[in-house]
Design a protein around this nucleic acid. Structure first.
Length: 572
DNA sequence: GCCGTTTTCGGCCCGACTGTTTTCAGTCG
């Protein structure tokens, strides 16, 4: 079993334990364990197989969790999981996804009324049976009915790029109220997570009530979930929840730090503060009752001797180790990228011409691009055969010859790795290209060994420059194709090839953990848009956010260098 | 369930808001 599945299992155990009213700290230990395994950066099986290392050396993994990981890796059953599964039906857990229903209420519904599915819960609410339960009332019943549809569309999180549209709209609306002195989005949106659940807005305002009234006039507002002295929550027609918090000016930095999270990052910060005899909450840093800091985030971190962490790395992974060593990486910026090496034109499934793509890229400040249309195997997209590819490259030569501004268009191709192995175009054709990205489009259901073999074969081909999407990952889709990523890393390193971080918000292949692992192994990443139109070039920022979350610097990203440098890396 | 320069027990981050209570538990972030 791989790390992701082990982590899912631990999270599932935590859900079940919560439902059975287990010790909350035991629940947290499983959640911590899940996160730790998910972020490991190498297969837990490798650590187990290494007699010089122990799983228990990892922070947060004790004897018990190490034993369960070993069992899962070996494919054995975990007795605790079987025991809990026998007690709690899967469908009952779904009740905890209803806003306002947590483990206690869900368990009460299950135990007292025998409700085990969302359908049964709806019926019970409509029959007025729920309000009779201790701790429940008519209002709770209404809340449940209203929240059922949300629970049924399990785990709908927006892509960051979609959340960004809403976020900008909300910020613009709030800025329309003149009494706003500070305004900032916090939460997972600010951390640049690939998906965002809800939006958190922080504000400092002259008149809190007036700002909240103004907030209530937001377009597309569906319901006001709650409104207090400092916090107001609303839900939009699109289902997005937005929380507005208004804080005093001297608390803005503390609140921004607090509500940006992540939760785990904050727990770690608070623990550090406690050791220093300080207390941190959303209002500031306190020594006893004395306010020490809170105006800016920088002030808050400084009281603990910590640097101002970029939001993208506040995940309680390695940022505190980096800070302690004084080695906080200077994360890559969008402006550092000087070339984009994966895009399509109307020769295949793109919508613009070579020159239109080049002009758009130039406008965005790039110095070079590679045109990488599909190869012939992708017949649906009218992929290029040898003759058409060579003709396109001739055209590119002519465009480059006419150009007088130093902008360079590389002759490229996204060449398919065939189902039976090998490339879709002959070597003598690929040899004519400046840049070849190899890609698995077909036979994605093959066994792991076979897909890995195909990719390794491509990496051995002297004309291949990069693997386009090394894991076939698509955000929000559960299963990418299965590949031995460690073997791919090793081959990429050996043959001096690049791995692509596909910046399309639906793909973001590699994920941040894989991206960090590639960095650790010294494999250069290229961040490409895979654009199919001139607007498509704009998705680059999604890739940048992903790279930043992985802790990548300018030095780790190959297309932050000029093409001459990249050619050297390829050994050309 | 994990952890330890107060170390094998007793802690484990902290506060707002809601609804159901009559002083607070549950939920959320």
């Amino acid at each position: 079993m791989d790390n992701a599945r082990i982590a899912d299992t631990f999270d599932h155990i935590a859900d079940l334990l919560e439902f059975t009213a287990a010790n909350p700290f035991r629940v947290r230990a499983y959640r911590n364990g899940a996160r730790t395994v998910r972020d490991l950066g190498e297969p837990a099986a490798d650590i187990l197989a290494d007699e010089n290392r122990k799983l228990t050396d990892i922070d947060g993994i004790g004897k018990d969790l190490a034993g369960k990981i070993a069992a899962l890796v070996a494919g054995d059953r975990v007795p605790l999981l079987d025991e809990l599964t026998a007690k709690v039906p899967e469908s009952a857990l779904a009740m905890m996804r209803i806003p306002g229903v947590g483990p206690k209420k869900a368990a009460a519904l299950f135990k007292e009324l025998g409700i085990a599915t969302l359908d049964e819960l709806r019926a019970a609410c409509e029959a007025g049976r729920v309000r009779g339960l201790k701790g429940f009332g008519a209002k709770t019943e209404q809340t449940i009915l209203a929240g059922l549809s949300l629970a049924e569309q399990a785990d709908v999180r927006m892509l960051w790029a979609e959340a960004d549209v809403e976020a900008q709209r909300v910020l613009a609306h709030l800025r329309g109220y003149p009494g706003v002195r500070e305004l900032e989005m916090a939460g997972s949106y600010r951390r640049g997570r690939e998906t965002v659940g809800d939006l958190d807005v922080l504000a400092v305002a002259d008149d809190v009530d007036a700002l909240m009234d103004h907030f209530g006039k937001l377009d597309d507002l569906d319901t006001v979930i709650g409104r207090g002295d400092t916090k107001m929550s609303v839900r939009l027609g699109s289902g997005v929840q937005i929380d507005l918090r208004v804080v005093p000016e001297e608390s803005f930095g503390a609140a921004l730090q607090y509500f940006t999270g992540s939760k785990d990052h904050n727990v770690a910060v608070r623990s550090l503060a406690k050791k220093e005899g300080l207390k941190i909450n959303e209002y500031g840093v306190y020594r006893g009752d004395e306010y020490v800091a809170g105006r800016t985030e920088k002030d808050v971190y400084a009281t603990l001797g910590l640097p101002l962490f970029p939001p993208e790395i506040r995940e309680a992974r390695r940022e505190f180790d980096w800070a302690a060593a004084g080695e906080l990486p200077k994360l890559i910026e969008a402006d550092d990228i000087v070339g984009d090496l994966h895009m399509h034109t109307h020769a295949t499934d793109g919508r613009a011409s070579i020159e239109e793509m080049a002009a758009a890229a130039k406008k965005r400040g790039l110095r070079f691009i590679a045109i990488t249309d599909h190869s012939k195997r992708v017949s649906m997209a009218n992929g290029l055969d040898a003759a058409r590819a060579l003709a396109q490259w001739k055209e590119i030569d002519e465009i480059n010859a006419r150009a007088d501004d130093g902008f360079l268009i590389l002759k490229g191709i996204e060449c398919d790795i065939l189902e039976k192995g090998g490339m879709d175009l002959p070597d003598d054709v690929l040899a004519e290209a400046d840049w070849v990205v190899a890609s698995v489009h077909y036979g994605q259901n093959q066994p792991r060994e076979q897909i890995t073999e195909r990719i390794l074969g491509a990496l051995e081909n002297p004309h291949v420059s990069a693997i386009a999407h090394p894991t076939g990952r698509i955000v929000n889709r559960r299963k990418p194709y299965e590949v031995d990523l460690e073997a791919v890393f090793a081959a990429a390193k050996k043959h001096h090839k690049f791995l692509e971080l596909n910046a399309n918000p639906h793909r973001l292949d590699l994920d941040d953990v894989a991206c960090a692992a590639a960095k650790d192994r010294g494999i250069p990443i290229v961040i490409n848009t895979d654009a199919h139109s001139t607007e498509g070039l704009g998705v680059l920022r999604n890739g940048i956010l992903q790279a930043r979350r992985a802790g990548l610097t300018k030095q780790d990203v190959a297309n932050a260098r000029g093409w001459t440098q990249m050619k050297k890396l390829l050994g050309k």
